[in-house]
Design a protein around this nucleic acid. Structure first.
Lengths: 342, 342
DNA sequence: CTGAAAGCGCTTACAG
DNA sequence: CTGAAAGCGCTTACAG
């Protein structure tokens, strides 16, 4: 008996009058065991409630069939509530399913670098780190410990240093900006977040380049992701307040929650969407689909991203070569009322 | 060196010219090691990229600090998409956070009874099984293998046989039905799901008892959970079609997705909510909050349920007594336009 | 202060 | 067909 009271393979062996080796063989269908013996062992094992320890088994090849997903932005979002974090929830769910399909379990881990982190936090065979921050300590730690990982979106301070699933932040931003221009916007502003990740940084770079090409003066404001829809009033003040010079007639919000807040605040201030302001959001949330007016968003296809990330993680865990192209599926644009004039 | 190429404690010992024991002591701050030696060991360990194997460590006390959440209804929902499954996503997110706070990781597991299930699927220290089906094989398996678990909502065929967090399906149904009656409904119908779980069963029982008390003829229809909003037309036909005798003027839908579909379909058929039909849903989804008209829902407080379930699971994992009351927080009613006349 | 030995619960060559 | 032995990578009394 184990300390915890759980019967071990020895207990089964004793009870069945055989050796542990034979129990192992019988229960795993390996080696050669007389049918009669195998049956008896199975019976006895069932009777005394034996279950093989996955930990002891995992010790042989030091693999548990466990993947871990670390969604970094959740740190600053400070919530798992679904409003506006559709993207991450869809990603977590899809990643769990994709892992299951490949014979792995998926663990959601907050921050494995935390001092009090449980044993399991570092026990995964491979890690997926979504949207790491600049010089992200999680990547540093995984790298130092030689734990395989793939990041979704690069660490903006260490591009290309690790295995990363390239996101298409740049082209996605252009997709949205071009759409706003085609819809009739002359002066497009950018509302970004304050997290130091690739999504924010590259989108901003892409926006600046886009403005330069069009000969437009850039107009950027950053608000904390965690504020979500609450930024509405402040953002209206920033872009349309008395102190403002040229007002934008198009706005690209990098997050759906910011867009939702701005959409509602615009209505309160008599700024009509889409007549006065064409509005689009980077990562769509359910409320953007349902709001009045509904808001045009990018669909980044987090399910596709998750599936790809899991595929890579499994290859890393098993040490097989990465035949996979290290990029995510292309985003699509869901055009809605906020960018449809007339 | 390990087979996988990962350095082991022996490698560190060799490189530092000490015994594995001393390495263990030094790295874990146990025993007594001269500062000088400890420093050297730390340095060498860093250099060769040593990381202690959580699996080997876990073997000592056969605990990994890992909890698992099995959300049974996801099987039939067949999706992790957020629409209308707010409840489970909020639950999964909150459970992950609650686990982290208590020094555990949380694993989302599909079905540990599956033949191909990974080692990790059965490696958790304790399991939380949400809304088990009747005679749920997952509960049977966990029970047979003496793996600690708590079910959220009972297995309707085996009530009270296992450790379960009692849900308040009965009183929650009454809360919604009473509200519909107070709002002016004379003939309240019930739209339930087809899953064989406690939520569906007990709600139906509560509804029948409620009808009996009020002297009202019960009117129940069941539609598959997986159909979600697509049930709209069929449900309208069922309750308001030509073949229907007495039409209901109040309707309680057990799921938010069903309610959303019905709400939209009612509008298309000229059935006004709330004027002609008072509508309430059992487990609210975001779209119920945002739809036109918005729909009154119960808030089951999945975060509270998750926190409680994790608390119980941790006690089970650690073998400490359950001082916790085995019941979930009381649901509240979010009254919205669909039940507000005038 | 340091290390040899036993042990955690399994699996796997290998010998009988 | 069955079992003794070694080993997976650690930790932990215990002896020196």
């Amino acid at each position: 008996m184990q300390a915890s009271g759980r019967p071990t393979i020895k207990d089964v062996a004793k009870a069945a009058g055989v050796s542990p080796t034979t129990v192992s063989h019988a229960l795993n269908g390996k080696g050669v065991v007389r049918q009669e013996t195998a049956d008896r062992i199975a019976l006895v094992a069932g009777q005394i409630g034996y279950r093989p320890s996955p930990i002891a088994r995992g010790l042989q090849n030091s693999r548990l069939g466990l993947l871990a997903l670390v969604i970094r932005p959740l740190r600053s979002l400070d919530t798992f509530l679904p409003e506006g974090v559709d993207y991450f929830l869809r990603m977590a769910g899809a990643a769990s399913l994709a892992a299951m399909e490949r014979g792995y379990s998926m663990m959601l881990v907050d921050d494995p670098t935390r001092p009090g982190a449980p044993l399991s936090a570092t026990a995964a065979d491979a890690y997926i780190v979504s949207e790491p921050f600049a010089n992200d300590p999680v990547l540093t730690m995984l790298s130092e410990r030689h734990i395989p990982f793939v990041s979704v979106g690069s660490d903006p301070a260490r591009r290309g240093q690790f295995i990363e699933l390239a996101t298409r932040d740049w082209e996605e931003t252009e997709l949205a900006l071009d759409h706003l221009a085609e819809a009739g916007a002359e002066r497009v502003a950018l509302l970004t977040g304050t997290d130091q990740n690739a999504w924010n940084r590259e989108s901003e770079e892409a926006y600046l380049a886009w403005c330069e090409r069009r000969g437009q003066t850039p107009d950027i404001a950053a608000f904390p992701e965690a504020e979500g829809e609450r930024i509405g009033e402040a953002a209206i003040e920033r872009f349309f307040g008395a102190a403002t010079g040229t007002r934008p007639d198009g706005l690209f919000c990098l997050t759906g929650r910011h867009a939702a807040g701005l959409n509602a605040a615009a209505h309160r201030h008599g700024i009509r969407v889409p007549e006065d302001l064409l509005l689009a959001a980077g990562s769509g949330a359910l409320q953007n689909r349902i709001s009045q007016p509904s808001v045009t968003t990018l669909d980044l296809h987090p399910e596709g991203i998750a599936a790809r990330a899991v595929e890579v993680a499994v290859h890393l865990a098993e040490g097989t070569p990465l035949a996979v192209p290290l990029e995510v599926p292309r985003a699509t644009l869901d055009v809605r009322e906020s960018t449809m004039r007339g």
